[in-house]
Design a protein around this nucleic acid. Structure first.
Lengths: 165, 165, 165, 165
DNA sequence: TTTT
DNA sequence: TTTT
């Protein structure tokens, strides 16, 4: 028995990148920034920003592609997952990402999200999605040449690229 | 405004490693395993274990050093923090760790933890600890040659080693 | 957009009480204790126990009925929900309960739970369960004369009793 | 060992009510609404709103009094606590409230909160506050005749009123 | 009592 | 790469 839970509230650095697995399942990737402020011992205001790589599958991925935009503020629940990969430089590294199983749009108004088609909402991964991790390949982030996003999202044959995030 | 929160329940893979910063502050590092089970599309039982690198400071670090052992089951609350470092091979990598601000011992009994001196308990990082991240150096995990643990923990002069975790 | 999330780790005060709605859906009710200890300003050790009324539906309810027992340690995730009811004394009161959507058995071994048939596990409410609250009546806790539990659980016609929890 | 944690994101129904204990400690009370939407079996859109009674102490209470307003969107972390009281009608009831130990203002802009003096921020209860529950009396909500709020908050002699929330 |  |  164990628990591996992450709760984030932050903003997207870019529009989500949505891709499709050979079996038709959608996969969305995007970064979410959280930042903390504090005063150091000299009383100086400090800030530190952390970028979280988010991965969503299926319906959640599709919703992200439709409604989330660069700058959108989101509440995300998920789990931490690490993954080994070999970079173009032939070096093995470990990437970590948050596999989301729940997402809620925050703040609403129109920052990142056209209020005309949508005004806030919350979504959960299908039960099976949350229980059954998809094959490793599916959680590999987009390759070097970025493609169009939120558009006629291309069906890709192989997500097994060598560059993470 | 943002939220960066992690909740874990899992077991330690080793005894915690406790070190001391030049200013006398304790820093504890240890790994916690969480695992998930699921059935794949062929109905085969699958399991995946994730190892989380935990970092604790100050009082929480000292308590970890005193009461946690390899195999101990713990509840941990903290935040995700990443950190760039250059390995011995000269390659730059990013490590992620969980900076804990709360810890509770679970299950008790005698698996990992002598019930004679202690029977469960919960601890929170001092408010300032949670608000003010210590200098980056302090969150660097132990160097290659492992030292004694939970013992007359040595005061180290420099935590700026080049190997993470 | 809003978030209403509760995370509990505690022990059951009794075996779960499982009942069935007219439509065949299972409903489980049980109390979980959490306690906090602290030292008051006189340095005296204080303790306070809180009892949480847990409600589970469907598969989660059935699993609770099968595997949870008085004394079992559980991790529960859910939401807070209040409910007005009128007691036998004709007085209206408000009860609050935790509608669980995830449950994990902790600690294992044999305290509350026969390790022969089971060794820990985690369960999530079906997506629809979490999305669609059942009619108010279904969340009403068992009436005064306690019935058999974890057994050939009786199909009840009406859960609209007037005593909460 | 146990965990009793609540995470809420919602909006204040009214300005916080801040009072002071005889010892000078501030206590803030306010309601936060969370709501869930779902479609029932007839495909009809349903909504249910839950009101959570929030209690904050000390610095957190003062910050709430200063920066939170009716309509403000907040992230709150705390624990569930119940409390018995006898109403004016002589009937004993149990009230539940969320004792907050962390609060973050969300969304910013000017809905509920003058962006001139403040633009988002996060606050944690002092460590001692979170560890040591204040005397029961202190968590009793405001009595019938509402007093001024967010103003020269009066020092009250006794919070032992008989009406909760 | 909030908000969309 | 976000935002205040």
């Amino acid at each position: 028995m164990s628990v591996n839970k992450v709760i984030l509230v932050g903003r997207l650095g870019r529009d989500p990148e949505v891709r499709y697995l050979p079996n038709g399942e959608a996969v969305a990737n995007f970064g979410v920034a959280t930042s903390e402020q504090w005063k150091d011992r000299n009383g100086e205001r400090q800030e530190r920003t952390e970028w979280h790589n988010i991965t969503m599958y299926r319906r959640l991925a599709e919703i992200a592609g439709q409604y989330l935009k660069k700058g959108s503020q989101v509440y995300i629940e998920g789990r931490i997952q690490s993954r080994k990969y070999t970079g173009k430089d032939g070096v093995e590294r470990t990437a970590y990402e948050i596999i989301a199983n729940e997402m809620k749009m925050i703040g609403g108004r129109d920052m990142g999200g056209s209020s005309s088609d949508f005004d806030g909402g919350d979504y959960a991964a299908s039960s099976s999605a949350s229980a059954a991790p998809v094959a490793a390949a599916s959680s590999v982030p987009p390759a070097a040449p970025r493609r169009e996003v939120n558009k006629p999202a291309p069906v890709v044959d192989d997500l097994d690229d060598d560059i993470p995030f």
